[in-house]
Design a binder for these strands. Structure first.
Lengths: 197, 197
DNA sequence: ATAAACATACAGGCGGCATGCATGCAAGAA
DNA sequence: TTCTTGCATGCATGCCGCCTGTATGTTTAT
């Protein structure tokens, strides 16, 4: 059987304008928020017209979704890379935690993923986007730590969700000018203590 | 000296339409979100015209602010009441925690205060609104518990912020159908653990 | 009469869609 | 091989309905 029946004419150009739109949208969404950014602004910054935007994306939300997706993938990659280096579950969890907080210091990520994201896409969708990836490392680490300490009846699933929220808030606090070391220490305290019977 | 130089003609009627607008807006904001709700819809539901809305509120955001404010006050009252009954700091904190989670089960509060609020008003303003009130009980409890257990060098301020975030997420999870008992247990675990040296 | 409380009318802008044009790819004919 | 025909993709332009905020007019209470 032949693959690529229709080889997509002009794929490069298409990808280029898509990327330009996503990049321009990202900058404006970060600067002025989703609601405060108009599609004319976006296409002007990208050097195209609104026709191109609505050719590539179903609507303004879909464009935001693409931006958020890109950001979430970058964060997940950072965690994956940092966690994979340390094989013991406990160390991997710690490394992943620090990696998450540092990945979220990239300007705009907190606004995109934690502030505008839930309101625009709904909390559920942005959870599937961000948490599902980032929380995996956390859960594995918690399960390992719980098994080690012999605490078997912990509500691990719930703890993962709540600790994820604490992570998010720590990222926001750090970007708002909070002392990173202080919040990292507080997160360590919470994680370590979460698995104590 | 005379007070009330201008006696505010028709204060009752004014308050009534204000209340009607806030109530109608609350219902629609909860049902369709802030962005998905138009001012024509709101005034139609309230039985007035847009003129009345813009007479009482500077803009649509100000109306949302009034709604969120009302909600935050109700939550704070619930916590205050529950916490005041138990005078020992530890008990007060526990009672306040449960009170918070139950107050947030009132339909729409999570969306208003935790999802749309930060995006519409900014994370900072909604923090001053909600957290400042709710977090006070939490901080006093943590300080008392830390003093009791002899752990003096805990980053209490940071822990309060992070635990508040966990509370918020617990409220969201519970409204989304999560098991309340499980999340309450997980929160207890986190709080108890936060003060362990 | 005077000022508040509201209603009405208007202006600017935005989001989404439909239409139109241009460019490239594929395949058959010469 | 080259040319040309057919067609889908990529994108620009114009339009429509709606919404927000304001300015102006009208009623009502004091």
């Amino acid at each position: 059987m032949q693959e690529r029946l229709r080889p997509r004419p002009n794929r490069e150009r298409s990808d280029a304008t898509r990327a330009a739109l996503v990049a321009a949208a990202r900058a404006l969404f970060v600067e002025k928020g989703y609601a405060g950014t108009s599609t004319p602004e976006i296409v002007a910054a990208a050097g195209v017209t609104r026709g191109a935007l609505y050719h590539h994306f179903e609507d303004k939300r879909a464009l935001f979704r693409a931006v958020a997706n890109q950001e979430a993938i970058a964060v997940a990659d950072a965690i994956e890379t940092a966690a994979a280096a340390d094989s013991p579950a406990g160390d991997a969890m710690l490394a992943g935690s620090v990696a998450y907080l540092e990945a979220m210091t990239v300007p705009g990520r907190t606004r995109l993923l934690l502030t505008d994201g839930p309101a625009v896409l709904g909390a559920a969708e942005v959870s599937d986007l961000d948490d599902a990836n980032a929380a995996r490392t956390l859960r594995e680490g918690l399960e390992a730590a719980a098994a080690e300490s012999g605490a078997s009846d912990l509500p691990i699933q719930a703890l993962v969700v709540l600790l994820s929220a604490a992570f998010d808030r720590a990222a926001i606090a750090i970007e708002a000018g909070g002392n990173p070391a202080e919040f990292k220490a507080a997160m360590q305290q919470l994680i370590r203590a979460a698995t104590i019977a």
